[in-house]
């Protein structure tokens, strides 16, 4: 055999091998799915740390709607879900201290629902995805983030991304801390989503899209300095919670006085106090023993948003 021919054959073999490595996961997943397009939706596996009992009830109701004989697994418990007893069941699940709850149909398969909503006293969010059995679901990673941008460009907050580890699907959870949501609303921010898809660690595509409708048209803010104490009031804020949260030495609480008002206060400047509260560049919101940690980028952009408020005359 001529050397040129041998080199061409080697080249072809390597090209075919690369094509197989790249295409086999997608092809195998399609075959496993009987050549059907993947179903939209995410498995009813709930991260209970991101839910309260109302949020769990809402999701559970939607998951078992129109079905009988469904069961929910949490910790080592397994209970049948009946439409009349969902509220009490959700209370029990939350009190059990389990990390996750999984909803199964009467055949024992995990139920797929179009989306999952997350809400507790710290965050609001949702989870969604695409059912992708086989290799493609394993080699593809997805992350969802929320992008909050103010019309003047001063605020540009990108929330943490959560990849969902459920096997057999490409899914993600998108979560916004309530404090951040209210601050963004006060700035008149637009809200968008960033979808990040990574395939076989070879390529990553980030799609950032949103519409320019403000989160709130009525939310406003004001900053007051009384002696050494600084207070930031966000009036007509879109989300509230009970209890008092702490971000370092900054106290955050919500009250109702004709409209919802969120108050952030501390001794000295709020942004400087937040900067002091950074641990490895990250801020943590604490509330009654529960905590939520913002990543570095989100923490710094949140502090920038507070600085912009403090700088307003």
């Amino acid at each position: 055999m001529k050397a040129g021919t041998a080199a061409r054959l080697l080249n072809l073999a390597v090209a075919i091998a690369i094509a197989l490595i790249v295409l086999v996961p997608a092809a195998q997943s399609l075959l496993e799915n009987d050549m059907q397009l993947p179903e939209m939706g995410t498995q009813a596996v709930y991260d209970l740390e991101l839910m309260d009992s109302w949020s769990l009830e809402d999701n559970l109701e939607r998951a078992v709607s129109g079905r009988t004989g469904c069961t929910v697994e949490y910790g080592s418990e397994r209970t049948e879900v009946t439409e009349t007893g969902i509220s009490a069941l959700c209370q029990r699940i939350m009190e059990s201290g389990a990390d996750k709850a999984t909803v199964r149909d009467p055949d024992g398969r995990i139920i797929v629902q179009d989306h999952i909503t997350y809400r507790n006293d710290l965050i609001v969010g949702f989870g969604t995805g695409v059912q992708m059995p086989g290799l493609a679901g394993t080699v593809t990673k997805m992350e969802l983030r929320t992008h909050l941008i103010s019309p003047d460009g001063k605020v540009d907050i990108l929330t943490n991304g959560y990849g969902n580890p459920n096997p057999g699907e490409i899914s993600a959870i998108c979560v916004i801390p309530l404090v951040v949501y209210n601050i963004a609303a006060a700035h008149g921010c637009y809200m968008g989503q960033v979808v990040s898809l990574e395939y076989e660690s070879m390529a990553t595509i980030d799609i950032d899209m949103g519409n320019k409708d403000p989160i709130s048209n009525v939310c406003t803010y004001s900053v007051f300095k009384d002696g050494g104490t600084t207070s930031l009031f966000v009036t007509d804020c879109p989300v509230t919670w009970t209890g008092t949260a702490k971000i370092g030495d900054v106290t955050v609480s919500c009250t109702y006085s004709e409209v919802n008002v969120m108050t952030m206060s501390c001794e000295g400047s709020i942004s400087e106090t937040l900067e002091k509260a950074l641990e490895d560049g990250c801020l943590t919101i604490d509330l009654d023993g529960d905590g939520y940690t913002m990543d570095e980028r989100m923490s710094s952009s949140f502090i920038s948003a507070i600085k912009a408020m403090e700088a307003t005359p």
């Binding site: 070879m202 390529a203 595509i205 980030d206 950032d208 899209m209 519409n211 320019k212």
Partner: peptide, 13 residues
Amino acid sequence: GGWQRVDVVIYGF
């Protein structure tokens, strides 16, 4: 009305 932006990173490819 809104915005769309696509970032592609293809180091592996």
